[in-house]
Every structure is written in structure tokens, then in C-alpha cells.
Design a binder for these strands. Structure first.
Lengths: 348, 348
DNA sequence: TTGAAAGCGCTAACAG
DNA sequence: CTGTTAGCGCTTTCAA
């Protein structure tokens, strides 16, 4: 009964994949029995099940996921769009997404937009064609721009690390306003009065929120918000360097620096050192994100930690909820930021 | 003729996806004409093509990739297995893979093994079920262990950043022996005689190769290979710290440090600073990889650069070659390492 | 409990 | 140039 040569070869030399049909024949049962044995084990008699298992094993059968998905309308794939995996903030988040997805039997297609909004459309279309079951999306620019694209799709989606005013799509975020508020208050508590704020790109809501938190902290502590102490960078190391050099060139005085992300802040710190300014003796510095680099740099950077890994995990759980419950509305999740004090601005 | 409500809704409220059938009806042609118009534009008269395009547009039709792939036996997906995206060496490589894949119309499924060899089997099986067109693989441990798994699959594959003795599977690597040789010679050239080598995990061929290069450089320069100067780490920052602390605790003297990767080397440098050892005045330090961190650290790290991004690109081109030409054998590619001299061990 | 058969959405012979 | 049709490999009614 069992054939001697397990694999059949076609001309090219590649082994032809074993199909459910051959398993059925080999086990002496019908196709549907094999399918049932695989998917609904209970509904097949023990004897036949055994025979099927044996056949599967002997033929080294692997169900064709494409056919399966085509039929079942479930691909067990989640599409993940992020700006750039090379940006040190994202790898941890991606790990969170990947690990959690795997835990629940899902896999991810990873796409980097590299900050190009038009790429988002391409990837979204791709996801539709690939029939992904859900989409986790971290947009590159203004969320508004991407929103219409997203809303066209009937695929469940979650927005990650980007806040949205309306509640049309669930989001996973950190309270950026609060994080910046905490950092600024910390600096104020250390007696700082002229805190330089290096903001991020103003298309990002996160940037605006952080700027807001900074201003709020100043105001609440009856400190003036000096426009010349608010500068902008592009979230890169070089951007931070440039921002600080400009400030220094303009002879604007400050007694502390708070950067809207760690990379810029580190860049700024580098310039501070170059100009012989002591950290934290002269200038205290606080960043935002808590990337690995922050703790390894000299001096180690005080920063506002975002739970990137957990955010990734949460996004997956949320998308799974959206996939399985047919509910229209899924509540968003806001994580708490956490101030990590290190050498660049020690705790009290 | 055109229906007024574009999308049909099923009970749940989700729009049903438009199929080729509906496009055909809407355009008043057969489904094969639609298919031809999409895939082989030349073979359809201009008039019908126009009508099809119009219908596709009006119905907002998106071909179902699953059905397509099932029929055509091409998924346009490449499976990528790496140890850990959080390891700073990999993101650039992944970008290279992702960007190049995208350029050629492919997409990637990303899987982290987290160093677990058994995970590799899971992902490989997954790839088979998902019918990926090719696999790019960076194994976690000994390549030998994973080799039998890989060879079972009839899917084209490329091994990335891992050297293989036999030529059964094409690889993309950097000449690790040469890189380590260059770094060691550089240090010797600066008059160093007792160069501490922090090796990586000895299951990895890359580690062994680098160790080899180190020894070769010493031997060729008539310097003794002192076993006590060879220590091991796990490629992590903490691993490097620990390795160096042990060496110091054992009162082993050295005048330079060469680490098998940047993270460990940075960790070692940290310990050096803690012990008040001047870099490069007292001890010179060289790393391996040239991760972003290396250039940003103080002092900036002299290191052997691996072209991670280009390696990722090359792996994709290679896998594409393997997919398209039915050739059994694809030549491997070996990149040249490059010594980048910075503050921790300046050039001459 | 098991099998026959329909069909998921698409591609590509093949026939006209 | 265009349409008819037979599957790709699987899941899932529906009957037996």
C-alpha cells in the first residue's frame, strides 16, 4: 500500500508538494476525513485518525496555507507598518508584536515606510491583496493624511504609537503629554528655570503632545514659556546636534535640555560636551524613549521610558480582539510613561 | 449598467470583497479577459482593456493574492529568519532585505528565533505552509544543526551572515577571518603586544573565524598567542563587561582589547573607564560590526565595519536569482570587511 | 462517522 | 482577440 518513493519528482528536479489528496489515498480515506482529522480531531474515529496521522507523517505532508486561507478567509497574518526598523525605538516594539503574534499563531509581514506617506498606501493595498487578518499601523506623518486610506479598508486595524483624536480606530499609545510634563517638572524641581526643549517634527501628534506637556509644566510652575527655548529637530542624532549648535550660535542661554526623543538628546549632549559644558554639573539633560543607547552613553541619560515591547504586545492583543469579536469598537490603551533618572540629571 | 451601490454588505456589516467575476460582469466581458487585462495587457484590445480598467476602478477591485498565489505557485513573499531584531546589528540588514525585496515586488515575513534552534524548525515549517518563494536564513547556533532542516525544504534559500563549509546552499558573508586579522594587525602596528581578545559564542562559525584571524595576525607578526588573553562573551554589552571584569580580577595584563562584536567591546570599554584606564592612552580598543552606537560612544570606537545593509540587499538578489533561474547552484558572495579608525584606537 | 461534491478567486490552456 | 472551462488545495455543507 505505501509507496516506496515518498517524494515524486517533476522534470525540473524539485519535489512536488504532497497534497491532501495523496494523504487521503495513502491512508485509504476520503479527503474530507483527512481535513477533519487535521482540523476537528474529535469528529473522526480514533482508528481513522491514526491512519491519517501516519500517512501525514510518512508522506511528510504539509497543508497548503494558501488554499486553506483562500477557503477559510483567514490568513493568520498580521501586516505591520512602521516608519523605519533602523530607528532604535522600533526594534523592541517589533519584537513585542512578533512574539505576541507568534504566541497566538499569527505571523507578521513587516513593512518600512521610511517616512514616506505614499508608501503607506502601497503597503496597505498590499495587505489587502495578501488578505492579512489585521493591520498594525504606525504612520510616518500626519495621521489625518493616512486616515482616509485606513478607513477604506475593511480589515481590522490598530494604530500603534500614534494618538488619534476621534475614536474611529483603536490606538496603543503612551501619554506623551504626561511624560513630557513629568520630565519638565523633574528639571524644574532641580531648580532649572530656562529649560531648552528640542521638539520633534511638528507633523507628529506625539511631538505636539510632548511640547504641550513641557509648556504645561512650565505654566503650572509659574515659569515663563520662552519661545526662543523651543527648537526643533527631526528625531535624529544629527538633528539634535544641529539644534543645539544653532541655539549656542544664537547665544541663547539655558540651564537644562529636554529633548523629545533620545537620539536627538544624545546628539545635543555630544555638542554640550564639545563646548565644554558639564553634565549634569552645569547643564542637566533629559531625553525621551529610553532606548538602549540612553543607558550606555556617558553620562547615562535620564529619560522618559516608553514601554515599547509591551506596546507591541498590546497592539497584537487588540487586533486579535478586533478580529475575533465582530464588535465595531475596541477600547484604546494608553500606557503610562516613566521617568528613569540617571547621571545626566540625577534624581533627588 | 453600473450598479449604484458599489459595495455589497453582508450581515456582519463588513463589505464583501469585490471579485474578478463582478468586475467582468460590470465591464461586460468574461473573467478571463479581466485576468488577461490585468496580467498580460498586450493581449487584450485597447477598447476592452479600457472597460476593464474602468470597472476595476469603479468597483475598487483588488485581486485576491491568495487565489492568485494558489494558482500561480508564486507568493511573492520571502521568509526571513534572524536571531533577534533587537540586536543592533540586524535592523540595518533587515532594512536591506526589506527594501530590495520591495524593489522587486516581494515582501517579507520576519521571524525572530531569539537564539532558539528549535524555533527555526517552526518557522521553516511555517514558511513551507505559507508557500514563501524563498528563504533568507541567519541561524542562531551551529549551522550544522539547522542544515538538515533546511535541506528538507525544496524552497530556494540563502544563508545570510553565516559561513558554510560546503557549497550546498549559497551564502552571503563577510570575510570574518580577514576582518579580525586586519583589526589585530592594526593594533600590532601600534606597538601592542598583549592584545586581549573577547571572542563570541563558539557555536558560531563567525566567532571561530574571527578568533582565527586574531591568531593568524599574531603568528604572522611573530607574537605569541597567549591563551589567557582569549576570553569569551555572548555578544551582549553585559557579556563584554563581565569578560573584562574577570580578566582584571585575574590580574591578567594587556595593552589592547579587541572584541568580536561592538556591543561586547563597548561593555568592555565601560569597565575600562570604571577602572580608570585611559582609552586610547593606556589601552587601545577595537570592536567589530560598526553599529551606530560605535560611532556615538565616547570615545568613539574603532571597529571593523560589516556592510549589513548591502548584505541584506545581496541576499535578496541572490534568492531572486535562485527563484527565477532553475539552476541548482548559485555562487556565494563574500563581502570585504573594512577597518574604521576612530578615537579608541586612532589610525596612524 | 464518513464521503461526495461544491466552491473559495484566480490563471491559463484551449477552442472559437 | 475573447470566452469557456478546468483546476490550484483546501474546507465544509449535505447525504448516506
Amino acid at each position: 500500500m505505501p509507496r516506496s518513493n515518498i517524494k515524486t519528482f517533476r522534470k525540473g528536479g524539485l519535489p512536488i508538494k504532497v497534497t491532501i489528496k495523496e494523504v487521503a489515498k495513502h491512508a485509504g480515506v476520503s479527503i474530507s476525513t483527512v481535513s477533519l482529522a487535521i482540523n476537528k480531531k474529535e469528529r473522526v474515529s480514533e482508528e481513522l485518525r491514526q491512519r491519517v496521522v501516519k500517512a501525514i507523517d510518512e508522506l511528510n505532508y504539509r497543508p497548503n496555507g494558501l488554499a486553506r486561507s483562500l477557503k477559510s478567509k483567514k490568513s493568520k497574518v498580521i501586516g505591520l507598518i512602521i516608519p523605519d526598523i533602523v530607528n532604535p525605538f522600533f526594534p523592541l516594539m517589533v519584537r513585542g508584536v512578533g512574539d505576541t503574534a507568534k504566541r497566538f499563531g499569527y505571523n507578521i509581514i513587516l513593512c518600512n515606510t521610511d517616512g514616506e506617506v505614499k508608501e503607506e498606501a502601497t503597503f496597505l493595498r498590499l495587505f489587502e491583496e495578501k488578505c492579512v487578518d489585521g493591520i498594525i499601523f504606525t504612520c510616518a506623518g500626519r495621521i489625518k493624511k493616512s486616515l482616509s486610506l485606513l478607513n477604506e479598508l475593511s480589515i481590522p486595524k490598530v494604530i500603534l504609537d500614534r494618538r488619534l483624536d476621534d475614536l474611529s480606530i483603536p490606538t496603543v499609545t503612551v501619554d506623551n503629554t504626561k511624560g513630557a510634563y513629568m520630565a519638565t517638572c523633574h528639571l524644574i524641581g532641580k531648580g532649572k528655570q530656562r529649560i531648552l526643549f528640542i521638539s520633534g517634527p511638528d507633523q507628529l501628534q506625539s511631538s505636539l503632545d510632548r511640547l504641550n506637556g513641557y509648556q504645561q509644566a512650565l505654566t503650572e510652575n509659574r515659569l515663563a514659556v520662552h519661545p526662543e527655548l523651543i527648537t526643533y529637530g527631526d528625531f535624529s542624532f544629527e538633528g539634535g546636534q544641529k539644534a543645539l549648535k544653532d541655539v549656542i550660535a544664537n547665544k541663547i542661554s539655558f540651564d537644562a535640555v529636554f529633548g523629545a526623543n533620545d537620539m536627538m538628546t544624545l546628539g545635543a549632549m555630544m555638542v554640550l560636551s564639545e563646548f565644554g559644558l558639564d553634565i549634569p554639573g552645569g547643564i542637566e539633560v533629559v531625553g525621551y524613549d529610553d532606548i538602549l543607547l540612553a543607558s550606555l552613553f556617558k553620562p547615562a541619560l535620564t529619560t522618559v521610558r516608553q514601554p515599547a515591547y509591551e506596546m507591541g504586545c498590546e497592539a497584537v492583543k487588540m487586533i486579535l480582539r478586533a478580529i475575533h469579536s465582530k464588535k465595531t469598537w475596541i477600547p484604546s490603551k494608553v500606557f503610562e510613561p516613566q521617568l528613569i533618572t540617571r547621571e545626566s540629571s540625577p534624581g533627588n
